[in-house]
Amino acid sequence: MTDQPDNHDRRGFLRCMTWAGATMLWSVAGGIPRSHLIGSAEAATTPGFTFAQVSDSHLGFNKPVNTAVTGTFQQALNALTMQTEKPSFLIHTGDITHLSKPEEFDTGAQLLKATRLPIYTVPGEHDVLEEDRKSYLHRYGKGTKGDGWYSFNAHGVHFIGLVNVINLQGTGLGSLGGAQLEWLEKDVKGLSASTPIVIFAHVPLWIAYQDWGWGTADGAQALTYLKRFGSVTVLNGHIHQVMQKVEGHVAFHTARSTAFPQGTPGVAKGPGPMPVPAAELKTYLGVARVSLVSTGTPLAIVDTPLAG
């Protein structure tokens, strides 16, 4: 029993080395993204600091597409912590749990704690199913405002965690709400325009696909407060696939899920879990690693599937 997870980790690590050779490195310089294939050596020597993003672990989900979501989440976390250069911290962009159950949050907390990395989270709609949202806020609400939004500074970058999954109404989209927008405007007011900004929230802040509700109704309003900044990176989850877009100085990026893939807009019938052959599942799941390159402002995002 005790040997198994280790062997698994080692296999996972070896696979990780293979992904590094096959993944795309996204460097965003002055709002213009460059992508190129990277070798593992190049990835390992990225200067500056890096942090990691995981998303949509859906702990508690147990349907044929993936009956072992705890295992795949664990594998994603192992892949991060076993890298030679550990990320400075880890951001989870929501849907930690599937049904907001205390035991699902407990599993999540244990696995996240085992990484020994500082953890920052924002809730997904699956984390706030309770009327009072107490299971989420009890664990991750300390020191946050409103429904769990906050900001912090790290290595000269200003990070902002936003909540866009509460009180969703007839717009069909995610929502930040007036109080949060007001707070955001004040939060960035005193910052110099050269401060790199990283915003993270669960539902895409831009309209990724309106028909499936993949966007935030007042996301554009939030971005008006960030117009003057030279480098803004927006990290989201929710849609269980990598999608990227650049608008002016703003780069948008969504992460894979560690639990199950969802359909592609325009191809799939709906936004639900997408059944894939079991052998291919791990090529659809993964983590993102973001590096601040110290020469200038660019942020490089490397998405790594759990296998592929």
């Binding site: 199913l129 969703l168 007839g170 069909g172 989209l173």
Partner: peptide, 12 residues
């Protein structure tokens, strides 16, 4: 009564 899904508000 117009209603939505509180989790996926595009469902009307």
């Amino acid at each position: 009564f117009n209603y939505i899904c509180g989790l996926h508000p595009h469902m009307k």
